[in-house]
Simulated scan of single mutants.
Amino acid sequence: MAHRGHSRTAAVLGVLLLACACGADGTGTSVAPEESGTPGRESTEQETQGTGSVEPGDPGTPVDVATGLEVPWGVDFLPDGSALVAQRDSAEVAHVAADGTVTGAGEVEGVVPGGEGGLLGLAVDPAFPDEPYVYVYYTAASDNRISRIEYEPDAVELGEAEVILDGLPKAGNHNGGRIAFGPDDLLYVGTGDAAQGTLAQDTDSPAGKILRITGEGEPAEGNPFDNRVYSYGHRNVQGLAWDDDGRLYATEFGADAFDEVNLIEPGANYGWPEVEGPGGGDEFTDPLVTWSPSEASPSGAAIAGDALWVAALRGERLWRIPLDGEGGLGEPEAHFEGDHGRLRTVVVAPGGDALWLTTSNLDGRGSPEDGDDRILRVPLE
């Protein structure tokens, strides 16, 4: 296993970043000691990633795009190839240019960081700039909520904000937080059970669910329970990604035995808290892939080429899981184990020839190094 470290020279980094440019998750924080697992182990960003323009195999060597960030959680790209990044503990959104230049775009009002809560997911409106909105999922004083915020690209500045959905239960952990626009241009929302497992089985509660809503926060037409709920029985959804055929895959923190990747079907029950992992019976949908929590605590997910890529927090690695083209998944392959610490979010860079991968070493569970937290660019070869 390689040791974590960044001993590149400035000259080499500059060349690599230039090449990149040309190619183009208040109060003080208190945390439980681990990720996946019962409270006392952590449970815990655009994550709507379509298949890229290349067919990648093994990832190449990661290089820094940006450093000095404060728990970068949600990431999504603007039409010009730059990205907006939600920083969990500072409640600030950063603009990151393709060459790594970081500019503050503003602070999201009403965020109350603490535990696993704070400024979490971020998604850019698919019709941007005609619909000049950025959506953020965050922990407020009494709940988790989603706001739609005007973004002014010329000024690199957040504008007026509107809360479009509130009342999502909050807790010190299991806050969910991932949001992403699907191929249907609707907003999908991964929520946690707020450490109250029974809520996940209640289809009238938004906790422990994947929600599907309009850009105004209303239930999407055709949802299976005539409300915002799309699927249920989830413990803490952390990643959302679609393949070319519109299939939705979601990553989820388990408790003591199994972390999961699930293929999401409308109205399906994924078992929590009645069952963890596979084998719960016909009324529950089994996961496609499971790991032990020490291997994963799977967070962000993205699809590029013929694979689902999953960032692992406690597992400190990037998982590549082959797609079989029919909704199934192959054997997961681990990359960069222990090299960069905790990995939170993975997104496909514009053009599809690279991933952007965020670390989460400042979240209270990691071992930060100089420059953390950072965004890494991972070429797909």
Rank of each mutant, 00 (worst) to 15 (best):
A307W: 12
D243R: 13
G118A: 03
H95I: 06
P206T: 01
E221Y: 00
G305V: 07
D166M: 05
G110T: 12
N269C: 02
L288C: 03
E252Q: 01
P153L: 07
G114N: 12
G197L: 05
T29G: 07
N269Q: 04
L323N: 03
P129M: 07
A180Y: 11
P350D: 01
Y232S: 13
T67Q: 06
I264A: 15
H6C: 00
E331D: 04
G325P: 03
K170P: 02
R41T: 01
G215C: 09
A304F: 09
C20R: 12
P219S: 00
L318N: 08
E295I: 03
G217F: 01
D99H: 10
T44E: 09
R88E: 05
Y133L: 02
P368I: 15
V75M: 14
L323S: 14
T251P: 01
A19L: 06
E337Y: 08
A94D: 05
E162K: 07
P62I: 08
D324Q: 07
L329I: 13
E260Y: 02
G279M: 00
L158T: 10
H174Q: 06
G117H: 01
D130V: 07
D370A: 15
V31I: 14
E160S: 05
A86L: 08
L186W: 08
W272A: 03
G280W: 12
L78Q: 15
E333I: 14
V108C: 02
G267W: 09
V163G: 03
V261T: 10
D226F: 08
L186E: 14
G315N: 07
G239A: 02
D372K: 11
G217I: 13
L16Y: 13
F77S: 14
D306M: 15
G366Q: 13
D306E: 15
R212N: 04
N173D: 10
D64L: 09
T27W: 04
V189W: 07
G117I: 00
L78E: 11
L18P: 12
I264R: 12
N175S: 02
T191C: 02
G277M: 04
I303Q: 02
L211Q: 02
H174W: 00
G5D: 05
L199M: 15
D259H: 11
V112N: 10
A195F: 12
L355N: 09
T38W: 08
L122H: 06
P287T: 07
T359E: 09
T61E: 13
G364L: 11
A83M: 03
A105M: 05
Y188C: 10
